[in-house]
Simulated assay, not measured.
Amino acid sequence: GEIIGAIETLEDITERKKAEDNLRYYLQEITRAQEEERKRIARELHDDAAQVLGSISRQLDNFIRKKQGFAPNEVLFLKDLQVQLNRGLQSMHRFCQALRPSLLDDLGLIPALRSLAKGLQESDGIATDLKVLGGERRFSPEVESLLFRIVQEALNNIGRHAQASEAQVVMEFAEDRIKVSISDNGRGFELSGRVDDLPRSGKLGLAGIQERARLLGGTIEVKSTLGKGTALIVEVPT
């Protein structure tokens, strides 16, 4: 009886592990497909819509400079129109970079993260520092994409919710793992329950980070104190 029970327990564990492996595989495939679709949309926006807007802006600039006889209010209207057009073009460039930054494909994870940090400082006025420890190295496109999305979501959360003046990203390369720490000096929040309870508590951004860390076989730790900021630590085996 004990032997049969042990065999059944072992079979249950094996089946559960197989189901978990299958789920991880499907999630990885979905993530890969999402990244490819993001890349395609970003490329089409850049090569088509952004080029058209840029051309219109240049034509409008030439029109304003060459044409004579405009009333002052007409000149102001055309210049205001050009300003709005250029703002739209800049927004589209930012959107393309958020969808799929060319730096990630061309130069790798660290340059893409530097661009993220610079973007947070420019858009939200949050002084953001990127520190790299250990021997920097490249990973597969899938791993780099997931790590990039983890940091991107964390910095987006800081910009939207933290009311911080400073943020820091630390990438620590070890022989068998990589550790990513994202922290801020913002308002913080009360942690209730386990990390697994994040979706039910409305912390969907953190829940998304947790899922990406799991796809990489990693772990996530969240530390936060009201009035003293938040720290997010993700460790991933390599």
Rank of each mutant, 00 (worst) to 15 (best):
I4L: 09
G5A: 14
E8V: 09
E11G: 08
T14N: 03
N22L: 11
R24N: 13
R24W: 06
Y25Q: 12
E29A: 07
T31I: 13
T31W: 08
E35S: 14
E44Y: 01
E44T: 02
H46A: 11
D48C: 10
Q51L: 14
S55Y: 10
I56T: 06
S57M: 08
R58L: 14
Q59K: 07
N62E: 05
N62H: 03
F63P: 00
I64Q: 03
Q68R: 12
Q68I: 13
F70Y: 10
A71F: 01
K79N: 01
L81D: 00
Q82L: 10
Q82Y: 02
R87T: 15
Q90H: 14
M92F: 10
H93D: 15
Q97L: 13
L103R: 15
D105N: 12
D106V: 07
L109K: 02
L113W: 01
S115Y: 13
L116M: 13
K118L: 15
G119T: 15
E122I: 11
D124P: 01
G125C: 03
I126P: 00
I126D: 03
T128G: 04
L130E: 04
L130N: 09
L130Y: 05
V132L: 10
L133I: 10
R138A: 06
E142H: 05
V143E: 11
E144G: 08
E144W: 06
F148A: 02
F148D: 00
I150V: 04
N156E: 12
N157E: 10
R160L: 15
R160T: 14
R160E: 15
H161Y: 14
M171Q: 06
A174L: 10
D176K: 01
R177W: 10
V180C: 02
V180L: 04
R187V: 15
R187W: 13
G188R: 03
G188Q: 04
F189A: 00
R200I: 13
S201I: 07
K203V: 01
I209M: 09
E211T: 12
R214E: 14
R214F: 10
L216E: 01
E221W: 01
K223Y: 01
K223F: 02
S224K: 01
L226R: 09
L226I: 09
K228P: 01
G229R: 00
G229N: 08
T230Y: 00
T230L: 00
I233V: 07
E235P: 06
E235F: 05
P237V: 09
